[in-house]
Computed example of a mutant assay.
Amino acid sequence: MLTSASPDLPNPLKSAPASLQRNVSIDVLKLVLAFMVVGLHVGLLQDTTPLIGYLFGNGVFRIAVPIFFIINGFYFFPILQRGEARRWFSRVVMLYLFWTVIYGYFWIPPLEPSLFGIAKFFHTIVIGYFHLWYLSGMIGAALLVIVFRSSKPRVAAIVVLGLYGTGVFIQYAGNYHVFSGTVFDRIFNLLWVYRNFLFLGFPFFYIGFAINKYGLQKRLSSGHILLAVAIGAALLLFESSMNYFIRGSDGGYDNLAALLLICPAIFIAVHNCKLYSNQKRIATYSSGIYLVHMFVLQTLQPHVDIGLTAMTLLVMVVSIGITAALIPLSRRVAFVL
């Protein structure tokens, strides 16, 4: 969500000076999104102001994953143009395998000679452990983008809207128990059924790809983009408020309908700020915080009881420290961060 998922190659923005080719505004956005992910997973403000905590956790903070997909899809376009897709896939796969092994401490069970144990093991390998699903989802999303990269815009738009709409439907049908008492209710309440590369990853990854391919960040006026951000924010808060007052805190919401408007709008608005630098340190911290924060949380949680909000801040601070320690290693081993 991630520096690692974004190319480390220079961003080919012709308007930037040759020595300042990195758009730092995007790096700052990624850092903010990484902190949002931490707040989402730990439960920022849920122990002090439940309504605000819910609106953050199942509303505002849910922009993080889709925007990360958009960012990586946006920079995937020039990678395909340069014929460097194989290198990109190799890097992401290595990153995924490395952190899957690191988190094996938490998810690899004692060896059980049972069919269920084996199936659970391979399910985790394929889908991804907890937050690592993003990396496996990005691999699948990128493969689908390659399939649809030459499709007509209308065809691609129909596919994107159809797939994301299906994910939204499955999630809401599950959380609202539309098919209560049936096998569909059980299936639709499985997180990985709707939060995956097909119904969440690919739609936003392709949106980012299309923004770059068709130059939408240049063709849309700043006024229209800011209007889209405002409308999207209002719809997002309305949607999450509706879920809170109707269903309470029952169930989480990854595939919120309003994300389809607000996330691309936020990305374009920030991208067009165009703050250039040749440093990628901020982006590296965003990657590190995302990758290590669950390890920090799961290590501290059994031993530290300070409330969700204080724990969120503690996890952020410790994650920053661990990332700082990993940066020198990442210079020698590229797939660490």
Rank of each mutant, 00 (worst) to 15 (best):
R154S: 12
L143A: 10
N175Q: 09
G167V: 01
G137F: 12
E112T: 13
R186C: 07
P109G: 10
T124N: 15
G128E: 02
V178G: 07
M138K: 05
V155L: 14
L198W: 04
D185Q: 06
V145W: 02
Q171E: 14
P113T: 15
G140W: 12
I146S: 09
S151Y: 08
L144A: 03
G137N: 06
R154G: 12
E112S: 13
H123S: 13
I187T: 03
G165H: 05
P109R: 02
V145M: 00
Y164E: 07
L163C: 09
A173Q: 08
A173Y: 03
R195G: 04
V193L: 12
G117L: 14
T182L: 02
I108Y: 01
I127E: 00
Y164F: 14
A156P: 02
F148K: 14
F130D: 13
P153H: 11
Q171N: 06
P113F: 00
E112L: 12
G140D: 01
V168E: 00
D185N: 14
F148N: 15
I170D: 15
L161N: 06
H131M: 14
G117N: 12
V183P: 05
F116G: 10
A141V: 09
F169W: 01
G137L: 10
F184I: 04
G162M: 03
V145G: 04
A173P: 11
A173S: 06
S114N: 05
F121L: 07
Q171S: 10
A142C: 04
G165S: 05
A156V: 04
W133K: 06
L190V: 09
L143H: 03
I127H: 07
Y194Q: 08
Y134C: 00
V147K: 04
I127N: 07
L132D: 04
F148P: 13
V160H: 15
Y129R: 14
G167Y: 10
Y176L: 10
M138G: 02
F122C: 10
E112R: 09
I139F: 05
S114Y: 13
N175L: 08
F169I: 08
F130Y: 15
L115I: 06
N196Y: 08
A156Y: 01
P153E: 08
V145H: 00
I127P: 02
L115K: 07
Y176Q: 10
Y134E: 00
S180M: 05
G137P: 07
I108C: 02
I139Y: 00
I118L: 11
I127S: 06
V159Y: 01
L115N: 00
G181S: 06
L135S: 07
A119G: 09
W107A: 13
T182D: 03
L191T: 12
N175K: 03
G165W: 11
F121W: 06
K120L: 05
T166L: 15
Y129C: 12
W133F: 04
I170V: 12
V183M: 05
H177S: 08
Y172K: 03
R186Y: 10
A156K: 14
I139W: 07
G165F: 06
F169K: 02
V155I: 05
I108P: 03
F122E: 14
V155Q: 05
L115E: 02
V155W: 11
P113E: 13
I170L: 12
